[in-house]
């Protein structure tokens, strides 16, 4: 699996995802600066990392979504290249319109930084094939703007098409229907607020996130 991590000014989980991708795939990902306009050839997976790109100015992910590299990311996503957006990466994916809805300020207004119980709703994706549908896992969140919002018709459609991939088991940030992660219609772009890369090796305390990377390596070679 050849991967690339897009680095924005203010990204702060780019090295965490870099280490996870390197360790699980055996190849260090290409680190691609946001001002670049092209991705390296033959990339199987693009990761949009967590952080506070552009200081969350205007709206979380708004500036990053308009940075030069994102056109290449959109084109690659359209060709079926897998894209994983974590936290700020999820916000960037909604801001570009690659994923529907928006991530608003947490309903409680507080920054939430803790481990949360997540239910795996869909295990039929390249990202979740190593999990069981309905399984509960523990993954940390760390965000101020994770309150997923979309109109009712969009929410119904996401639910009906099995595109809600992860759901919080309990209240975390006010997200509509406790949605923690969604996938696009084609099934190759996943956005999620929790951080699987921060729970992927024994030193992290738990390893519930590692099966996402193992599944991706299995699916993407």
């Amino acid at each position: 699996m050849k991967s690339a991590v897009i680095v924005f000014p203010g990204s702060n989980c780019d090295r965490d995802i870099q280490v996870a991708l390197r360790d699980f795939s055996g190849h260090g990902p290409a680190m691609v600066w946001h001002r670049d306009t092209e991705l390296p050839e033959g990339i199987d997976l693009i990761a949009l990392p967590g952080g506070f790109s552009y200081g969350d100015y205007l709206r979380a992910g708004a500036m990053a979504a308009r940075s030069p590299i994102m056109q290449a990311v959109k084109d690659a996503a359209g060709r079926g290249v897998s894209v994983l957006g974590i936290c700020n990466g999820f916000q960037i994916l909604t801001e570009t319109g690659i994923l529907p809805g928006a991530l608003m300020r947490n309903a409680g207004l507080s920054y939430v930084c803790r481990e949360v119980n997540l239910k795996v709703e869909n295990s039929q994706t390249a990202f979740t094939s190593r999990y069981q549908a309905g399984e509960e896992i523990v993954i940390p969140v760390a965000h101020h703007d994770g309150n997923y919002t979309a109109d009712e018709a969009t929410l119904d459609r996401l639910e009906g098409e099995g595109r809600v991939v992860f759901r919080y088991n309990g209240e975390v940030n006010g997200a509509a229907r406790n949605i923690a992660g969604i996938i696009n219609e084609a099934g190759n772009v996943l956005g999620m607020m929790p951080h699987p890369e921060r729970m992927s090796e024994p030193a992290h305390g738990r390893t519930d996130g590692r099966r996402m990377f193992e599944g991706l390596v299995e699916a993407l070679g």
């Binding site: 205007l58 308009r66 801001e95 529907p100 608003m104």
Partner: peptide
């Protein structure tokens, strides 16, 4: 529509 407002919300 392209930047200043997120017309989803």
């Amino acid at each position: 529509t392209k930047l200043l407002a997120n017309t989803v919300i």
